[in-house]
């Protein structure tokens, strides 16, 4: 989980000439290396081709045969909505907390403690998602049910909190919270790493000018770390969008509803996990088409993240 943003050292100054006499061992080895690289491109092309070819029957079929009876689009948009909402809840909850933890580890905690905390965060990022799912359904859902009931009772006039709240607590809000817990270590790990890379001279210069600790962080650490943090948040978003098990296990799924505190809604990934094992015929194709939609969404998010990071790099105040 250590996605360093550090530029790799220049390694391009080795002799590359002498193309004339190629030894057989050299040739075979370089062919093998190149083949492995090309294989990766083939695999990715294969992912796209197989998904598209298996999804195609969905778009050719009569709309009434698709699940729900109104065509693929009306089948998939509530799932897209659910996916985005769950990921959004996760990010809204996780981002400030993750930045807090990252700052705490990098600039507030005593040095010896901060290294141990770094290990702990890395370990938490490695806990399998199914464990978080089990925890969400068994521990979190019963514990937050009261809060959702309170929201439905007192803020029920807001469409998002329309009652009646689910009695089991297995709602979109809970699923979003579980996702938040899952993406927290990722965002934290990336942010902590970029915060730690802030040039010491920038920090010391700010402190020497009489800045308080927060002013030092605001003036030197945050401008330096911003692209990295955005990248980390996008990485977390990608994980939250594609995360399957937590939602599949925690959410009590159902049709589209605006209410986040009652059961209902579903995400693409969870829908696939729940229905694919028992699906057959056109339903299988429909689920694969939904998977394709998810693939496109996450691809878009990842590309956007990379673009933002590369665009901001020049202005980050680094170097």
């Amino acid at each position: 989980m250590t996605t360093t943003t550090k530029a790799p050292p220049e390694a391009d100054q080795r002799p590359s000439g002498r193309r004339g006499s190629v030894r057989p061992g050299d040739r075979n080895f370089s062919i093998a290396a190149r083949a492995a690289g090309i294989l990766i491109l083939i695999v990715l092309a294969g992912v796209t081709v197989f998904l598209v070819s298996e999804a195609l029957p969905t778009f050719q079929a009569d709309p009434s045969e698709i699940e729900g009876g109104e065509g693929f689009f009306s089948y998939v948009w509530p799932l897209v909505f659910g996916t985005l909402v769950a990921a959004l809840i996760a990010l809204i909850v996780a981002t400030p907390l993750a930045l807090g933890i990252a700052l705490f580890i990098s600039h507030y905690a005593p040095r010896r403690m901060s290294q141990g905390l770094g290990y702990v965060v890395d370990l938490l990022a490695a806990i399998p998602s199914v464990v978080y799912g089990l925890w969400g359904i068994q521990w979190l859902a019963p514990n937050v049910q009261g809060a959702w009931a309170w929201l439905a009772e007192n803020l029920g006039f807001i469409p998002l909190f329309t009652g009646p709240a689910s009695a089991t607590g297995r709602t979109m809000m809970t699923a979003g919270l579980v996702l938040a817990v899952m993406v927290l270590p990722i965002i934290t790990a990336v942010s902590r790493e970029v915060f730690l890379q802030t040039p010491k001279l920038h920090e010391e210069a700010a402190l020497a000018l009489g800045a308080t600790r927060w002013e030092m962080i605001r003036m030197s650490v945050i401008p330096f770390g911003k692209p990295g943090v955005i990248g980390g948040v996008m990485l977390g978003l990608g994980r939250a969008l594609g995360e399957t098990m937590a939602v599949a296990m925690v959410l009590s799924t159902g049709g589209f509803t605006w209410s986040l505190v009652s059961s209902g809604n579903n995400t693409i990934a969870a829908e696939i996990a729940l229905d694919f094992p028992e699906s057959s015929g056109l339903k299988t194709n429909t689920l694969i088409a939904a998977g394709l939609v998810l693939f496109v969404i996450t691809l878009g998010v990842n590309m956007l993240a990379r673009w933002i990071v590369s665009r901001r790099k020049e202005f980050s105040g680094a170097n």
């Binding site: 998904l51 399957t244 694969i288 998977g291 998810l294 693939f295 691809l299």
Partner: peptide, 17 residues
Amino acid sequence: DVMTGIPSIVAGLFAAA
């Protein structure tokens, strides 16, 4: 880089397909 971002369920669907 793109592959790093493939959701795990999509990887599963690919193998299944």
